[in-house]
Amino acid sequence: MTRAMLHAAGVDVRFGGVHALRDVTISVRPGEICGLIGPNGAGKTTLFDVLSGIRRPDGGHITFAEEDITRRSPVWRARHGIRRTFQRQQLFGQLTVTDNLVVAQDWRGGLRPGTRRHRERAAAVLRECGLDALTDAYAGALPVGQARMVELARALADPPRVLLLDEPASGTTADERRRLAAVVRHMAEEENCAVLLVEHNVPFVMELCSRVVVLDLGRVLAEGTASEVRADPAVREAYLGTSPGTSPATSPDASPDDSPGASPDAAECEED
């Protein structure tokens, strides 16, 4: 079996008296799309903060390509290929869509910002993401769905080795979700990128991901294929708050359209 590109082992995080993550172990391999789901407050975004270096864990360690990076900064991780999108969009609103991607490449140096090579790469990524009609639009003026796709494109501007996507489908249309799914699959299958995806739109995750990990109250509750996770009574109870069979509209496999085009309900738009 291929070794993990990114691996978290025994991660603990505390906020005062609150134990946000408890002995969490999770990994993602090159070419794999792994989904991370769980009820609101389960600790999903906190785990992403640990993986991306924004927060240092109180216990456990993180390895990247078998190197311990627990104490490495977010900048070091980004420059070595660990890229992340955010639950709340982090675009440069006063820059054009193209310039948002140019800036993402500039850290390597050796080229004057905005030179042809930067812009050619930006144009290629924007075409792949279906954003080529927005190259000169200002990022701050875009609707939510397009802005999320631009944030994804920016994460791809300098090819990543690990892609951490925090609720990328939130606020998107069905067509945008289909495009998002196609881009993510391409990155995994053609670029051998390791993808870890947090998303409240559970049908989107189940359709897209080859493996799903479920967090609840800061612990790993279940892990397996989409069908295995759907059938797990503990997972259903974590989502329903009762025994399986109650309030099917909130269950992990309930949706009017069980596909990447499925739309989340209001509860799915809340923050972790």
Rank of each mutant, 00 (worst) to 15 (best):
E128S: 14
E268F: 00
A174N: 08
D12P: 04
D265S: 03
Y239H: 13
E32T: 12
H118Q: 10
S27N: 07
D99T: 05
Q87W: 06
G53H: 13
L152F: 14
G245P: 03
A42M: 12
G35R: 03
T85V: 05
F92R: 04
A226W: 07
S263P: 00
C129V: 10
T115G: 15
H7C: 01
G10M: 04
L163Q: 11
L165C: 09
R178D: 13
F204Y: 06
D158H: 03
F64N: 02
H7S: 09
W76A: 02
V162E: 09
G93F: 00
T225I: 06
L91P: 15
H19S: 01
R116H: 03
L196P: 14
P160R: 03
A188E: 03
Q146L: 12
D12Y: 07
I82G: 04
P74V: 03
M187D: 02
D23C: 07
V205Q: 01
L240P: 13
E67I: 05
D272I: 10
T115M: 07
A182C: 08
R72P: 01
D136M: 11
A153N: 10
A42F: 02
R83C: 15
R119T: 08
A78W: 02
L126P: 07
Q146E: 13
A194F: 08
A174G: 15
M149W: 00
G130W: 12
A238V: 01
A222P: 02
V102S: 02
N201L: 03
G218V: 02
I82D: 09
A226C: 07
V18G: 07
A254K: 00
R117G: 04
V229N: 10
F204R: 03
Q87T: 08
D175F: 05
A65E: 03
Q87N: 12
L196F: 04
R117F: 06
R55G: 04
M1V: 08
T2E: 15
G41P: 09
V214Y: 00
S27G: 14
T250N: 10
F86N: 12
E270M: 06
Q146F: 10
E270P: 03
P233L: 00
L47A: 09
A181Q: 05
G43I: 09
V150L: 04
G81I: 05
R22M: 02
G130S: 09
L164Y: 06
A157H: 08
D258W: 06
D68H: 08
Q89L: 15
V183W: 15
H200P: 14
G16Q: 11
T246W: 01
F48D: 02
A181I: 02
E32M: 05
H186I: 01
V184N: 06
D232Y: 01
R77E: 11
D258K: 06
F204L: 13
L208P: 08
A78N: 09
G43R: 08
A181R: 03
G17F: 01
I82R: 12
L111W: 14
L134Y: 13
A169W: 00
R161P: 06
P233C: 07
A169D: 11
S251R: 07
N192A: 15
F15C: 12
E228S: 05
G31V: 08
V75A: 10
A139K: 08
A262S: 15
Y239N: 14
M187G: 02
S251M: 01
D58T: 04
S27Q: 10
D49K: 13
I37R: 07
D216G: 01
G35H: 05
A169C: 10
V28F: 04
L164P: 15
G245E: 00
L101F: 02
A123E: 14
L165T: 10
E268V: 03
